[in-house]
Simulated scan of single mutants.
Amino acid sequence: MKHLRTFVSTLLAILAAAAVPALLFGIESDAACLAFILALAWILVLGLPTFLILKGRGCVRWWSALFSGFLLAAIPIALLGWPYHPGGGMSFSAWDGHRMVDYVVNGIPTRAGWRQFLTSTFGFGALGSASALAFWLVWRLCGHREPVVPGTPPETLSLASCQGAAQTRARNA
């Protein structure tokens, strides 16, 4: 029965996390459906394994969710969107809402190109953090608590508490 409860609460947390990007596009739009499907795939491929690793170490906290969600969203986007391509002779301009702006000239990003790169990387990172926090909140509201080292406040901001909890659990096993 305990395993079923854990499975159901984790499934609900995954669905909640995938719903966050969909809510940005509005519930009834086609873009929301696509955002939900892509977020769900992203969570299953990157988020769930990270959660299981953190859970195994006793480190599922709100701050670990925010941090890992940011990294899991920002790093792949940063790698895919890296604007610096020297020697390629590639140039890229786009309309920024007011005028045409050069983002890359002869493979070298302009200031606007770097600004666009950082904005999109941090934007996706923030979205990843929001999704991971939604996951953590649902998972926590389903009654899950991570063990901590005796005498340590349950929501401490110390990574040492995660390491200590894993060591205590290993000794007790």
Rank of each mutant, 00 (worst) to 15 (best):
L137Q: 09
L71I: 10
H3V: 11
C142L: 15
T121V: 13
F124G: 13
Q116A: 15
I14Q: 13
S91P: 14
P21W: 02
F25Q: 08
I75P: 05
T152L: 01
S129Y: 00
G164N: 08
W136D: 13
E28P: 00
L23A: 08
W136F: 15
D96W: 09
G69W: 06
G97A: 03
A130R: 00
W82Y: 10
G69Q: 06
N172A: 14
Q116G: 11
P154T: 10
G113I: 03
T156S: 15
L141R: 14
D96S: 05
I75D: 04
L118K: 03
G58H: 00
Q167V: 12
G143F: 15
E155M: 13
G107M: 02
W63C: 07
N172D: 14
T121R: 00
A41F: 05
A16K: 11
D96R: 09
D102M: 09
I37P: 02
L11P: 04
L54R: 09
H144D: 13
A130I: 00
L79C: 11
Q167E: 15
I43D: 11
G87L: 04
A170K: 14
A32F: 00
L66V: 08
A173H: 05
L23G: 14
R169S: 14
R57N: 08
R5L: 14
T156D: 07
S68E: 07
T168Y: 09
S91H: 09
T50N: 11
T152N: 08
R99I: 04
G47Q: 06
A74R: 01
L34Y: 06
L159F: 10
L159H: 08
T168E: 15
F117P: 05
L24C: 10
R61G: 01
L79H: 02
V149R: 07
L24G: 13
F25G: 05
G69V: 07
A173N: 04
I53D: 11
G107R: 06
S29N: 07
T6D: 15
V104G: 07
L72S: 06
H98Q: 09
P154Q: 13
S131G: 12
S64T: 13
A78I: 01
P83R: 06
A74V: 01
L71F: 13
P76E: 02
R61H: 05
A170V: 05
F25Y: 12
L34M: 10
G107H: 02
S91L: 04
T110W: 06
G123Y: 03
K2H: 13
L159Y: 09
I108F: 03
G58C: 02
G97H: 03
L52S: 06
G58W: 01
G58N: 03
I108R: 07
P86T: 00
C142P: 03
F70G: 06
V45P: 06
R99H: 07
V104L: 08
P76F: 00
D96K: 07
W136G: 10
R57L: 15
F135Q: 15
